[in-house]
Simulated scan of single mutants.
Amino acid sequence: MKTFIKTFVLPSLFIVAISTQVSGQTRRSSTTNANKKVTTTTRVTTTKTTTAPRSTGRRVSSTKVTYKTPKKKVVSVRSVPNRTVINHKGQNYYYSNNKYYTQSRGHYVVIPPKVGFRINVLPSNHKRVYFNNRNYFNAGGIFYIQTNNQYEVVEPEVGTVVYELPNDYEKVVIDGLTYYEYANVLYEKVQVNGARAYEVVGIIEIN
């Protein structure tokens, strides 16, 4: 009987034990592989695109701006023929020959209209400027957008490009760098397809 147990029973138990161990290893291997699949899935990188809100961008305090000429250029005349009077927030503007004037000490001084100023008809010298899915109308360095049946003065967005500036622009220095300024809009000279142009880089805030 002892011989039977040694010859048949013990080898059978050994085979069963080996089979169980192999089966356990197989299950652990399958589990490990499954875990690897999960890890690979969680490592997939998703790129998220965020659209920034519309903004005029960089704003510079007037205290940081130094004008290269000691006195700001002032264009004045004694009379404004064929003028149109436009009142905006209690201030009279006198419009004639594509320019706006204000009255001061018996003279009419050229002055850019402020943001929010509205007119019914654009100045005849306006040019269309398209930037960032928005239509601007630039006339003598002043930017307008169409609002219903009127045209409103606005600040241009940083990156907007024009190909000429008004004759009475100013050169200014900010942090050691030279820019061009008109109506509190800062420009930097650039090249576009080999042509000279001016790109809006910021707005001067009056303190």
Score class of each variant (00 low, 15 high):
Q146S: 10
I86Y: 09
V110W: 03
P113V: 08
T32P: 02
N167F: 08
P123M: 06
K127I: 08
T42E: 14
I111Y: 01
N87R: 12
S30E: 12
G116C: 05
K2M: 03
S62K: 10
N92S: 13
V154C: 06
Y136M: 06
V162R: 13
V201A: 09
L10A: 09
K72M: 08
T20C: 09
K127M: 10
R196G: 08
T66Y: 10
N33K: 11
Y182C: 07
I5L: 15
M1G: 13
R118L: 03
N98W: 03
V201K: 15
P53M: 12
L13P: 00
A52M: 13
N148C: 01
I203K: 12
V162M: 06
N193H: 11
V9W: 11
Y101D: 05
K73M: 01
T147W: 02
T26I: 07
I111K: 15
K72H: 06
A52I: 10
V185Y: 07
S55W: 00
T31K: 04
A17G: 06
Y169R: 11
V129S: 06
S23Q: 08
K73Y: 02
G90Y: 06
Y94P: 02
F137I: 01
T46E: 07
I174H: 10
S124K: 13
T56A: 09
R58T: 12
V74D: 04
E181F: 06
K64A: 14
R28P: 00
E199L: 03
R78E: 10
T7G: 00
R54P: 00
T56Q: 06
V158T: 15
F143R: 10
N148L: 05
R59H: 05
K64W: 07
T7V: 10
Y144W: 03
S29K: 12
I5Q: 14
Y163K: 11
V172S: 13
I142W: 02
S96D: 03
S76R: 12
V77N: 03
H107Y: 11
N33Q: 12
K189P: 00
E157N: 01
T63N: 15
N92M: 06
E155Q: 11
A183Q: 07
T20G: 04
K71N: 07
D168W: 03
V44Q: 11
T66I: 10
H126W: 12
E157D: 05
K89M: 08
G159H: 05
K37I: 07
T42Y: 12
T160I: 00
Y100M: 10
V192F: 11
T32N: 15
T45S: 12
T102D: 02
V74T: 14
V74F: 01
S12L: 15
Y108V: 02
V162W: 09
T147Y: 09
V161G: 07
K37M: 09
P113Y: 02
I119F: 00
V9G: 00
V172Q: 12
V38D: 06
Y100V: 00
S12A: 15
S29I: 08
T7R: 15
F14T: 15
G141K: 08
N97R: 13
A197L: 04
Y151Q: 04
T160C: 14
V172F: 07
N135M: 05
V190N: 08
